[in-house]
Amino acid sequence: MNIAYELEMKLRPPQKEMLPYPPKFITLASGEKMVIRQVKREEIPLLLEVIEPLIKIEKDFYDIVAARFYAELLGFFRYRVRDEYCLVGTIDGVVTSICNGRLVNDDLGMSYHTMTIKRGLRCGAQMFAAKMEYHIEILNQKEVFIVAESPIGFRRWMIEYQLVPRFHVQHELGGVPTYILTRDLYFAAKERLVTGTRPVPKGLLETSDTLILPEEYPQIPGWRR
């Protein structure tokens, strides 16, 4: 066996078998249907392209979120992050929003980032809700560690879900204070915040088979791919 390959295999973290996130769709205010599904590893290079233009946008902390998200997905793609997943929201195949996270162990989830390209339709809130649904309902975990890196995130996650502070524990994203979503908090918020229909009708699900790069970003006026 190739020595370099052998060494590479030593560097790769072991991967746990994760139950897949069953796709769902949500009818947005515009009437458009957003399909939310799990991202396959081979789709990550395309998502890196989705994120890249936002890495230097300071407004609303897109730079922090985009740079870190890029690194997390790269780590996932090149086998440097253990037990990571990524969900994508699409409208007619175009990527509108993405979110990711990781399993620390069977009971504990680590929420990473949520990012919206298409604005004004609360896509980000639906993606975050889907991520919590994945941890609590699908993977049957007990708790999720969450941090906010922007004021809007703090309001959407900490206040909206009434997350409990647990500042003495360390979230993997560094020093931002850690908050916890418990199963009880999730189920208390579920009716108000989590929605979607399963199964996704075949034709609608197929629109999401091939991910399409967004042509423009409301965050970067005048920019076109």
């Binding site: 009818t27 009437g31 339709l121 609360r122 929605t195 229909t197």
Partner: peptide
């Protein structure tokens, strides 16, 4: 500010509307 049409299905009639239009 908002150049985005919304529909009755999206904000009132669909089963997701109570979450989407909270």
């Amino acid at each position: 500010h908002v150049q985005l049409p919304v529909t009755m299905e999206g904000i009132a009639d669909s089963s997701h509307a109570s979450v989407v239009n909270s």
